[in-house]
Amino acid sequence: MITCVVEYVVDPAKIEQFEQFAQRWMELVNRHGGTHHGYFLPSEGASDKALALFSFPSLAEYEQYRALFGVDPDFVAADRIRDESGCVLRYDRTFMRPLLP
Rank of each mutant, 00 (worst) to 15 (best):
M1I: 12
I2A: 05
I2R: 08
I2M: 10
T3F: 02
T3P: 04
V5H: 00
V6I: 01
V6C: 01
E7V: 09
E7T: 14
E7Y: 03
V9E: 13
D11R: 09
D11Y: 06
P12G: 13
K14C: 04
I15S: 01
E16P: 14
E16M: 08
E16R: 15
E16W: 05
Q17H: 10
Q17I: 03
F18H: 06
E19Y: 02
Q20R: 15
F21D: 04
F21W: 10
F21L: 03
Q23M: 08
R24K: 14
R24T: 03
W25Q: 07
M26H: 09
M26K: 11
M26T: 08
E27H: 12
E27S: 11
L28W: 03
L28A: 06
N30F: 06
N30C: 10
R31I: 09
R31G: 14
R31P: 09
H32M: 09
H32K: 11
T35M: 13
T35W: 07
T35V: 15
H36C: 15
H36A: 12
G38M: 05
Y39W: 10
F40G: 01
F40L: 07
F40P: 03
L41K: 01
L41A: 00
L41C: 00
E44Q: 14
E44F: 13
G45S: 05
G45K: 01
A46E: 14
S47F: 10
S47A: 15
S47E: 15
S47H: 13
K49H: 11
L51E: 02
A52M: 10
A52H: 08
L53K: 08
F54I: 06
F54E: 03
S55C: 09
S55V: 04
S55W: 04
F56N: 03
F56L: 05
F56C: 07
S58N: 13
A60F: 02
A60E: 14
E61R: 11
E63N: 07
Q64A: 12
Q64D: 12
Y65H: 11
Y65E: 05
R66I: 07
L68F: 09
F69S: 11
G70R: 10
G70F: 08
D72C: 11
P73W: 03
D74E: 14
F75N: 08
F75H: 08
F75A: 07
V76D: 04
V76E: 07
A77V: 04
A77K: 07
A77E: 04
A78C: 05
D79P: 00
I81L: 07
I81K: 04
R82D: 01
E84G: 09
E84Y: 08
E84T: 14
E84W: 07
G86Q: 10
V88N: 01
L89H: 02
R90M: 00
Y91D: 12
R93V: 15
R93H: 08
F95W: 06
M96A: 12
M96Y: 05
P98N: 14
L99F: 00
L99C: 01
L99D: 00
L99K: 02
